[in-house]
Simulated assay, not measured.
Amino acid sequence: MFNEIEAIIGKAKKNKNYTQRGAVPSEEIADLESQLKIVLPKDYKYFIKHYGYCFWFGGVVSGLVGDNKRYEKLCCAIRKTKYYHDFYDHDSSYLSVPQQGLVIGKWAGGGYYFLFSQESERAGEVGLFLTETYGQEVSKFNSFTDYLSFLVTGTPDPEPVDVDYDRIMDIIED
């Protein structure tokens, strides 16, 4: 699993404007888990321990930014998670952001990628939740590693998730 992350990051580094933080102290990772009251999946924990976060032209994987405040808004998983909780949880039309995990990416069309933590029934999965579906999940990856691979290489494809279109129509009609 960890060799696969190394290989994917090796490909990501070839992208235009690739940037990463680098090694993160274990205390910062423990602090993230403590603040959000979660346990991170092993592949994501490996990623943030070795890379912190990364982005390139067209892709972002949020994590821990440390003292680099320049990238905090774009790349800080704690900040993104709190932002989406505030955004979705104050409008009863939208489904609340799940509690057991964290936001690791933004969907350019409106929405977010959510990594489910170890204590979740969906431990390790990454779901895409869209604004246009009022916070409903529309697709998922089986692991953080699959999500990272998709961002960098375009494979594997995400799995579709059933969307409750009747609920959406009820919201629109109200």
Results as ranks from 00 to 15, higher is better:
I104V: 12
S62Y: 00
S93T: 11
D89L: 02
L115H: 00
S96I: 02
F114D: 07
K45M: 08
T133S: 03
K80A: 13
K69R: 12
Y83W: 09
G58T: 09
C75F: 09
Q136G: 11
V163I: 15
L64M: 11
Y84T: 06
S149G: 06
V60E: 07
G111N: 05
K45S: 13
Y83L: 10
K42P: 13
E132W: 10
H85R: 15
R79F: 04
T81A: 07
D170S: 13
D157W: 08
W56F: 14
Y134F: 14
N142K: 12
R167C: 00
G135Y: 02
V152K: 04
G52P: 04
L64P: 00
V163T: 14
S120K: 02
Y53Q: 07
Y53C: 07
H85C: 08
R122T: 10
D157P: 01
E121W: 01
R167H: 07
E137A: 14
D67N: 12
C76F: 04
M169S: 15
Y134R: 00
F150W: 14
G52S: 10
W107S: 06
S149F: 01
R79E: 14
F87Y: 14
T131R: 09
T155F: 09
G111Q: 04
Q118H: 07
W56H: 11
P98W: 05
L130A: 07
Y88A: 08
G109P: 02
Y83D: 10
E119M: 11
D166Y: 13
L64W: 01
L102P: 03
P160Y: 04
Y112K: 01
A123F: 02
E125C: 15
R122I: 05
S149R: 01
F47L: 07
K42I: 09
V126W: 13
Q99A: 10
Y71A: 13
Q99G: 04
H85D: 12
P156L: 05
S120R: 02
M169P: 00
I168K: 08
L102D: 00
H50K: 11
F57N: 15
N68Y: 04
L64Q: 04
Y53F: 15
D162Q: 15
Y147S: 08
S139C: 15
V60Y: 03
Q100I: 02
V126M: 14
F87T: 06
V138M: 03
D170E: 14
V161G: 03
F144S: 05
